[in-house]
Design a protein around this nucleic acid. Structure first.
Lengths: 241, 241
DNA sequence: CGGGCTGTTGATCAGCCTCAATTCGAGTGG
DNA sequence: CCACTCGAATTGAGGCTGATCAACAGCCCG
């Protein structure tokens, strides 16, 4: 994909072009931590482990960019997504601190990655990881485990996209997001409505109306647009069959 | 999931209970061949490599079944899917001869697997593969590669489910399916409309109407319900942005 | 020739989208 | 400190796509 391919993975200038072709967000989230990333880093293996700072809506890499590096979120939130030629966007996942993204098998990144908010990202050299895995049984097992867990998450996402109605989609999103929130007290949504919509295959208006509807049913409360109090988490979970 | 858990993975009785809770089909397809499965098998490593015969709509394993074995399609077509409690179904993928399915990281199968038509399946012991991978760098790399390619496919599927309209969904399905068909001359759909619908997040009626619509536009031709002649493959591909 | 299943076609309905206007909130400058 | 501005979010009205309900046609098999 065009536009901001001068980003990280390609050049050394870690200033991504303004991303934001269109916006929408939601919660998929990578659950995994790759402990060998920490290990390798501490041992100084991937000398690259450099830290990058981004403001919101910056492209980290684009679809089709050479996949030389992969990344770990240190602070902030990152989304990976696909754009159709007419601008429609599907968000694949959100990545929280500790989550790894951008790992590929082929030569290129298959999705784009962008920051949702101000974020600090650590980059690693893919080749270093491959070398580590080649000599380390534990590392290659973790690598496989990481991929399979991502796969499981993608499959669950497909069910939500294909077979659930708007209320169920939003409920699933909130339930997922809550699982990664520090306090189950009040959820802080780091992303705008557009991201939630693009994650769930809806429009911002439908997301907004659904929030209102859930509030009407006393399942949630919206102190502000970005803060959600789950008054009845069990009731929400119940909406997922 | 309940019902037919006496299937393969659990007992030795390779008679799956009638599956068919509801039906629908479509084309996702695993692209990968795991060559170490062949290798291992030829070397006699997984002594299990036993061959199983199924008629159509039989459950191979159910969601939640213990994942002791994994499988490879020898003849026929297999689908993996998720059922919601109210009967809604999302088909995750179709597996063709040579494709491997049912490989897990956790203790249980995360999806159900069922035959689409009469099929011959080869079973392998997961532990054997894990041992092979532990001592064989090439095998563990292939394992990772397999998982990542499945992941890429799942991500593409999510875009179709979340951001494409009915015509585009059906066109995407036909294009995918055509890629795995021997002749690009005439496609033979091995699955009923219900499976296509559940793969694409549509209803059978919409699938049927969309086929009719594409035929009206002279993009395809339907000699029979299960045979499709792609009159304009390029036109179909063009529908995918 | 008569079931039973699969697929097609028609009519109607509803959920979600689209377009549009308004409100809300945060940041800026007077 | 308050008016102003701009983007995000909400809310409303109406339309369209795809779902639902229903009837019918085609086929396979007995």
């Amino acid at each position: 994909m065009g536009k901001a391919n001068t980003a990280i993975a390609a050049s050394g200038g870690y200033q991504a072009a303004e991303a934001a072709r269109r916006h929408r967000i939601a919660v998929g989230v990578e659950i995994q931590n790759l402990s060998f990333v920490r290990e390798g880093y501490q041992r100084g293996l991937p000398a690259v482990g450099s830290t990058l700072n981004f403001t919101e809506n910056q492209e980290i890499y684009g679809e089709g960019d050479e996949a030389v590096l992969f990344f770990k979120v240190s602070i902030g939130v990152v989304r990976t997504c696909t754009y159709l030629s007419d601008g429609r966007r599907q968000i694949d996942a959100f990545y929280l601190p500790g989550n790894v993204f951008g790992l590929e098998v082929g030569a290129e990144h298959s999705l784009s990655a962008e920051t949702v908010c101000n974020s600090t990202i650590i980059s690693y050299r893919r080749r270093d990881l491959e070398m580590l895995a080649a000599n380390n049984e534990g590392a290659s097992r973790q690598l496989f485990s990481y991929a399979m867990q991502s796969l499981a998450r993608a499959q669950q996402h497909a069910v939500v996209l294909g077979r659930r109605c708007a209320v169920e989609k939003v409920a699933a999103f909130l339930t997922d997001w809550a699982a990664y929130s520090p306090q189950s007290e009040i959820l802080t949504l780091e992303m705008p409505r557009q991201d939630i919509a693009d994650y769930l295959g809806l429009t911002i208006e439908t997301v907004s109306r659904t929030f209102a509807h859930l509030e009407g049913k006393a399942l949630i409360e919206l102190p502000t647009a970005r803060q959600i109090r789950l008054k009845d988490p069990e009731g929400l979970r119940h909406l997922n069959s």
